Amino acid sequence: VTVHVDGVEYDFDNPEEALKFAKKVAEDKNGTYEVHGNQIRVT
C-alpha cells in the first residue's frame, strides 16, 4: 500500500498501518485522505 503525501510516497506492507498513518497525517495538516485501491492520497 502506498500513501502519497505532498508528492512523497510512503510504502507500507500492512494496509492497517498505512491507513493509520494516512489518518494521522491528514489530521495533523487538517486535510483529508482518499483511498483508491492500494493507493491512499492525503490532501
Rank of each mutant, 00 (worst) to 15 (best):
K29Y: 15
K29M: 15
D13T: 11
A18V: 00
P15F: 15
V25H: 08
R41A: 07
I40R: 00
T32R: 13
F21H: 05
V35G: 03
V1M: 14
V25D: 02
T2P: 01
T32N: 11
Q39M: 12
T43K: 12
E27D: 11
K23P: 02
V8T: 09
N14R: 07
N38P: 05
H36R: 11
V42D: 01
G7H: 05
E34S: 07
D11V: 15
I40F: 03
T32K: 13
F21M: 04
R41E: 08
Y10L: 04
A18E: 02
I40H: 00
E9H: 13
D6R: 05
V5K: 01
V35M: 08
E16T: 08
T32A: 12
T43E: 10
V35I: 12
V8D: 07
I40Q: 01
G37Q: 06
R41L: 14
Y33V: 15
V35D: 04
T43W: 10
G7Q: 05
Y33W: 10
H4W: 15
A22H: 00
G31S: 06
V1T: 11
V8G: 05
R41G: 04
E9F: 12
L19V: 07
E17Y: 05
E34Y: 09
Y10P: 00
G37T: 04
E9D: 12
H36A: 12
G37H: 06
K24R: 09
F21T: 03
T43I: 15
H4F: 14
V3W: 00
H4P: 00
G37L: 07
G31R: 06
V1S: 06
V8Q: 12
D13H: 08
E9T: 14
D28T: 11
T2C: 12
F21C: 10
E27M: 13
H4N: 11
N38Q: 08
T32G: 10
A26G: 03
E27G: 11
E27I: 11
G7D: 07
T2R: 10
V8C: 12
E34C: 14
I40Y: 02
V8M: 12
G31Q: 05
K29I: 15
L19S: 03
D11F: 15
N14K: 06
V25Y: 08
T2S: 09
G31V: 06
K20W: 06
P15K: 13
Y10S: 02
H36G: 05
E16F: 07
A22R: 00
D28V: 10
Y10A: 02
K24D: 10
Y10D: 00
N14W: 05
I40E: 01
